[in-house]
């Protein structure tokens, strides 16, 4: 199972999370987003970038409630709330955004 980015093959698991995190690129993110049926806007990128920074600092993809709480703190309550985040990523902000961000499945998502 793999994504195709300009002829390069990027392996992913059965749920679509890439297996080698260092193979991520913005182009790949766009391709995963299309597969997830998400039209990436500025707000989506802000969440994806936030996740990548969180992973860089803590080596972990946060659970959804942790993600929303952290986004609320860093970007404000108009972004960091359940309703808005589920509008951006209808199938789960942590799961979908992590996939697009090239991170593993969030830890602590039950």
């Amino acid at each position: 199972m793999s994504y195709d980015v300009n002829g390069a093959t990027i392996e992913h698991d059965e749920e679509g999370y890439i297996t080698n995190l260092s193979e991520w690129s913005k182009e790949l993110a766009g391709i995963i987003a299309v597969a997830e049926d998400i039209d990436m806007g500025e707000e989506h990128w802000a969440v994806v970038n936030f996740l990548r920074e969180y992973y860089e600092e803590y080596q972990i993809a946060p659970a959804v409630r942790v993600l929303i709480k952290s986004i609320k703190k860093s970007m404000g309550p108009e972004v960091g709330n359940n309703k808005y985040m589920y509008e951006l990523f209808p199938y789960g902000p942590a799961k979908q955004a992590c996939k697009i961000a090239g991170l593993p499945k969030p830890t602590g998502c039950v």
């Binding site: 600092e57 803590y58 080596q59 972990i60 942790v66 709480k69 602590g108």
Partner: peptide, 14 residues
């Protein structure tokens, strides 16, 4: 190996 020591600093978020 994966360095998981930074993750201890995320425990507060949890």
């Amino acid at each position: 190996l994966k360095n998981f020591s930074p993750t201890f600093r995320a425990l507060g978020d949890y």
